[in-house]
């Protein structure tokens, strides 16, 4: 059976439009099954009508992104959290 999705690196460009940090290396936790892994490991369907990123463990939707002519719609209700690596703040 052919694979009909891309990996989460396909989200780098569209998410880069709205986030100042590199989100594909962030660790997302699936609201469906609790599995945690980098955004880059999600299974991404689309790009049209929108990007739908699913958990590689349970296939539930973790993140959706639709680009309309004048907005980006981002739905992250399928993610409990997103842990974004950051440098230690300067003291």
């Amino acid at each position: 059976m052919s694979i009909d999705y891309l990996d989460g690196n396909a989200l780098a460009g569209p998410l880069g439009e709205i986030f100042a940090v590199e989100v594909t290396t962030a660790v997302g936790t699936c609201a469906g099954c609790g599995a945690a892994g980098p955004v880059a490991s999600l299974h991404v369907y689309g790009p049209e009508p929108g990007l739908v990123a699913r958990c590689p463990s349970c296939e539930e939707v973790v993140l959706r992104l639709v680009r309309t002519p004048d907005a980006v719609w981002l739905d992250m209700r399928g993610a409990i959290s997103l842990r974004i690596p950051m440098p230690e703040p300067r003291t």
Partner: peptide, 20 residues
């Protein structure tokens, strides 16, 4: 599914109702 992510609630192609 798509109506909660920016697409039009009704979607009549002759009125070009693509997005909200």
């Amino acid at each position: 599914f798509w109506e909660t992510a920016g697409y039009h609630n009704y979607g009549d192609p002759w009125r070009e109702q693509r997005y909200q």
